[in-house]
Design a protein around this nucleic acid. Structure first.
Length: 436
RNA sequence: UCCUCAGUAGCUCAAUGGUAGAGCAUUCGGCUGUUAACCGAAGGGUUGUAGGUUCGAGUCCUACCUGAGGAGCCA
C-alpha cells in the first residue's frame, strides 16, 4: 500500500493508511500498546489492541524497541482525550530491523554524550525542530535575495591567501602548493558584484580560531550579499529588511517548531524594522555611562573593539536587533571605506541580535580607491601580490559598493532561543569536535 | 594561549576520610487509555590515568588526559 506521511494524516481520517518510519517511544497498559511513531515528517501515537490484531502483530508490538524501523497499517482518527490531536488505530505492524539498546534513552543526557551520538541525536524531537527552522531560514534567505534581483555567485572554498589576514586559517595541501579554506567570500563577491550588480554567496566558512564558546564553530555557513553602487545606509536598510523577512517567515511557517523549542515568540515579533541605529561613539558613551552606574565591570576605552560582554550590554538596551555603525578604522579590516567626514572611522556596521546573542551581521562599505587599498595592504603587512586581481577591480570601473555577511548558525540560534550554536547545524565542527 | 568547573554502572546523578547507591536503559513478571506511563524482580562497577598523604581515599595533595563554560578573536 502507498506510504502516507504523518504530517498529511488529517487528510486521511477514517481511511486505512500505511506509515513507514521508526518507533520513537513505547508505552503499554496490559493488552493495549501505545507506540509513538516518527517518519521524518511528524510524530503520531499508534494504538494496538491485542484483541483486534493478529498474534504476529501483537508479538511485534511487545518486542519492538525504541528506534526500530517499522511499517504500520492503521486508520487515523481524533484522540479521545485531546481534540485536534490525531492517533492511529493500528491493525498491522511489521518490523524491518529490531534496534538493540538505542543509546539515546528518553531520560536526559550530557552534552558530550549527545555530541558523540549526534548522528542519532538528530532523530529527537527538539533537534528535528531546530533543523526545520534552519531549513526555513536558509529558504527565506535565498528567497529574499532571489526576489530582489540578486544573483547567486558562489565563491571558492580553496583560497590562495587570507581574505582578512588577522584570523587563523585552516591550511591544506593543494597539489604542490599551500592553500587555505575560505574565511569569507567577501573579496570574490566584490568581483562578481562588478559583473552582476547585486550578488550573494552562501556557503561554508572556516575559522581556525581556538574559541570555545556557545557562539563559535570552526565550520559555519555564511550568506554574504554585495551590492555595486550601494552606500553604508543602503546596506543597513537591506540588513534590517533582510532580518525582518527571515524572522517573519519563521514565525509564519514554523509555529509548531517554535512551540517545541519553547521559544518566546513575543520577543521575536518585535524584531521588525526599523532597527535602532547607534554610532560607535555613542555606544562607547553608553558603555562608559553603564560603568559609572556599576552596570558593567570594565571601563571601556574609546577606540577599541567591543568584547562579548560589551555587545551583550549594548543589545540588552533594546528589544530588537541594534545596528552599531562607524567603528574606528584601526580595529576593522583593511578593505573598509573610511568615513569622508571622519577618516578615522570606517563605514561599517555590526548588527547585534537581542537577548545577548551577539553579532549576527557584520558589513559595510568597501574601499573603492586603489591608492587607499595599496596603503592599507602595506599597513596590515599583507602580501600585495596575493591581491593583484582584487586591485584590478579598482582599476577597471571602480564604484562605491557595500555588503555584509550573516552567520546562519548564530541567526538560527537566536531565532530558536538556543544556549549554543552547536545544535543549529547537523554535524557541528568545533575546537574539540571533528566526529561524527 | 589563559581563567573557572567537572570526570563514579550503558546513560543522568548520589555517597561527613570508614561495607559504592538511586532513577532511566536492558531482561523477566503485572496492568485495556498510556503521555519522559506506572508497579514488582534481576543482572550490571579497576570511581578518567599515574603517583602521593593516611590504619583506611570516590572523597585530601601533585601531575597528566578528556570534556564543559568563559576571556581573547570573531559571524
Amino acid at each position: 500500500m502507498k506510504q502516507t506521511y504523518i504530517k498529511e494524516i488529517s487528510r486521511h481520517l477514517g481511511q486505512e493508511i500505511t506509515i513507514k518510519g521508526w518507533l520513537y517511544n513505547k508505552r503499554s497498559s496490559g493488552k493495549l500498546g501505545f507506540l509513538e511513531i516518527r517518519d521524518g515528517s511528524g510524530l503520531i501515537q499508534g494504538v494496538v489492541s491485542k484483541k483486534d490484531v493478529s498474534e504476529q502483530t501483537w508479538e511485534n508490538t511487545e518486542k519492538v524497541t525504541q528506534e526500530s524501523s517499522i511499517t504500520v497499517i492503521g486508520i487515523p482518527r481524533e484522540h479521545p482525550k485531546h481534540p485536534g490531536v490525531y492517533e492511529l488505530d493500528i491493525s498491522d505492524l511489521t518490523v524491518h530491523q529490531l534496534a538493540q539498546d538505542y543509546p539515546i534513552t528518553p531520560k536526559e543526557h550530557g552534552v558530550e554524550y549527545l555530541m558523540d551520538h549526534r548522528h542519532l541525536w538528530l532523530r529527537s524531537r527538539r533537534q528535528h525542530a531546530i533543523l526545520k527552522v534552519r531549513h526555513e531560514i536558509i529558504k527565506a534567505v535565498r528567497d529574499f535575495f532571489d526576489d530582489d534581483g540578486f544573483t547567486l555567485c558562489d565563491t571558492p572554498i580553496f583560497t590562495p591567501a587570507a581574505c582578512e589576514g588577522t584570523t587563523n586559517l585552516f591550511e591544506v595541501q593543494y597539489f604542490d602548493e599551500k592553500a587555505y579554506l575560505t574565511q569569507s567570500g567577501q573579496l570574490y563577491n566584490e568581483a562578481t558584484a562588478a559583473a552582476f550588480g547585486k550578488v550573494y554567496c552562501f556557503g561554508p566558512t572556516f575559522r581556525a580560531e581556538k574559541s570555545k564558546t556557545r557562539r563559535h564553530l570552526t565550520e559555519f555557513w555564511m550568506v554574504e550579499p554585495e551590492v555595486a553602487y550601494a552606500k553604508l545606509d543602503d546596506i543597513m536598510d537591506l540588513a534590517e529588511k533582510f532580518i525582518g523577512h527571515i524572522v517573519g517567515r519563521v514565525l509564519e511557517n514554523r509555529k509548531e517548531e517554535l512551540i517545541i523549542l519553547e521559544r518566546d515568540t513575543a520577543l521575536l515579533e518585535k524584531a521588525m524594522p526599523p532597527f535602532p541605529r547607534l554610532q560607535y561613539d555613542d555606544a562607547v558613551k553608553m558603555l562608559q555611562q553603564a560603568h559609572t552606574e556599576g552596570k558593567v565591570e570594565n571601563l571601556f576605552e574609546l577606540g577599541g573593539d567591543f568584547g562579548s560582554p560589551d555587545e551583550t550590554y549594548i543589545s540588552s538596551q533594546y528589544d530588537k536587533p541594534v545596528m552599531v555603525h562607524r567603528y574606528p578604522a584601526a580595529v576593522k579590516a583593511f578593505y573598509m571605506e573610511p568615513d569622508p567626514q571622519r577618516p578615522d572611522l570606517a563605514l561599517c556596521v555590526d548588527v547585534l541580535a537581542p537577548e545577548g546573542y551577539g553579532e549576527i551581521i557584520g558589513g559595510g562599505e568597501r574601499a573603492s580607491s586603489l591608492e587607499l587599498l595599496l596603503d592599507r595592504i602595506k599597513e596590515h603587512e599583507l602580501p600585495e601580490e596575493a591581491f593583484d586581481w582584487y586591485l584590478d577591480l579598482r582599476k577597471y570601473g571602480s564604484v562605491p559598493h557595500a555588503g555584509f555577511g550573516m552567520g546562519i548558525e548564530r541567526c538560527v540560534s537566536w531565532v530558536c532561543g538556543l544556549e549554543h550554536v552547536r545544535e543549529t547545524i547537523p554535524f557541528p565542527r568545533m575546537l574539540n569536535r571533528l566526529k561524527p
